[in-house]
Simulated assay, not measured.
Amino acid sequence: MSLPILYDHAGSICSQMARLALVEKAVPFQRRPVDIMDTNEQFEPWYVALNPKAVVPTLVIGNKVVTDTIRIVNRVQSMDGPDLSGDATTQGWLKDIMAPHYGVLLYRNRLDPDGTAPQIVARGKLLKALLRQHPEMADLLEGRIAGNRRFQALLRNPEEIETHLASTRTLIDRMAAAVADQPFIAGPAYSVADCFATAALARFRIHRLTEWWRGTALEAYYDRMRARPSFEAAGVIDTGSERDI
């Protein structure tokens, strides 16, 4: 049987979560990069046929296609290899770590004085052009265009941005509390919750939010996660600037 194929993007936080799960589970796999930035390959008809939401990652195992990051890591966890199931809190952590608006964290420092995010405006224009080229993908593209408009409006609202920052800090505080008396996010052993936590903390580090956990148990926890062989093997990115992702 051929190796599983992970369709992903290097800088995508969700792709990093999936890669960590595969590496920690010791599952051999192939990577097929999908350029979601420069060429917008995720909107190519061949990829939309695999993943109708046109997002990464997508995991293909034989003739089975798995989408959605939580479903992907849980599918990986079900494979042969080390147990990454964690304790009863694991699935809740996956949902909670996925909850922050990572787009707000990324673009809040890349706004023009009037609150406009040039890259998001350009993405809206691209989506409209794609709709003209691919009317058969109208449901997908019209939904993304509407979402783009909502995102632009959100970024022009400082109070909304502060609300999302506050919820992110609450998550970080909860993670710090979780590892204050245990070595991993969801119990005494590494689990898929740590795959999510590691990728999220890496992204928060790029966003210069480390002061929110400096001096807490979460600082030591992240140092341990960075020291694991999977961090480099999975290509987790926590250096550089927001313009690099």
Results as ranks from 00 to 15, higher is better:
61 I>V: 15
155 L>W: 03
70 I>A: 14
55 V>T: 15
161 I>F: 05
234 A>P: 08
120 I>K: 12
122 A>D: 11
134 H>S: 13
71 R>H: 11
220 A>T: 15
35 D>Y: 10
99 A>C: 08
242 E>A: 14
62 G>T: 05
49 A>W: 03
204 F>A: 08
65 V>W: 02
195 C>Q: 04
180 A>G: 09
68 D>L: 06
106 L>E: 09
110 R>D: 11
39 T>Q: 12
104 V>F: 10
5 I>S: 05
76 V>N: 00
239 T>W: 04
104 V>E: 05
205 R>W: 07
147 G>Q: 11
212 W>V: 10
80 D>E: 15
36 I>R: 01
178 A>W: 02
241 S>K: 10
117 A>R: 02
186 A>R: 00
25 K>S: 06
165 L>M: 14
77 Q>G: 08
244 D>Q: 13
240 G>I: 01
150 R>H: 08
23 V>H: 09
191 S>W: 01
57 P>S: 00
180 A>Q: 14
51 N>E: 09
56 V>D: 05
149 R>V: 14
84 L>D: 07
69 T>M: 12
151 F>V: 02
47 Y>A: 04
93 W>D: 01
194 D>F: 06
226 R>A: 09
219 E>N: 09
130 L>C: 04
17 M>N: 06
122 A>I: 02
157 N>C: 11
147 G>A: 14
109 N>F: 07
41 E>K: 02
239 T>R: 10
145 I>R: 06
196 F>A: 15
18 A>V: 01
182 Q>N: 06
23 V>P: 06
44 E>C: 11
107 Y>R: 14
115 G>V: 11
44 E>Y: 05
214 R>I: 05
123 R>T: 08
160 E>G: 08
14 C>V: 03
16 Q>P: 04
201 L>N: 05
187 G>E: 09
81 G>C: 07
66 V>K: 01
224 R>N: 13
34 V>C: 08
210 T>C: 11
243 R>F: 12
146 A>G: 09
38 D>L: 12
198 T>V: 11
54 A>E: 00
56 V>I: 14
31 R>N: 10
199 A>I: 04
45 P>W: 07
142 E>V: 10
94 L>A: 06
189 A>R: 11
235 G>W: 10
233 A>G: 04
208 R>W: 02
229 P>T: 09
142 E>M: 13
134 H>N: 13
124 G>H: 07
142 E>T: 12
222 Y>F: 15
244 D>R: 04
143 G>P: 02
74 N>S: 13
47 Y>M: 01
20 L>R: 00
45 P>G: 02
172 I>P: 03
170 T>H: 08
180 A>N: 11
168 T>R: 00
5 I>Y: 07
206 I>F: 08
40 N>T: 07
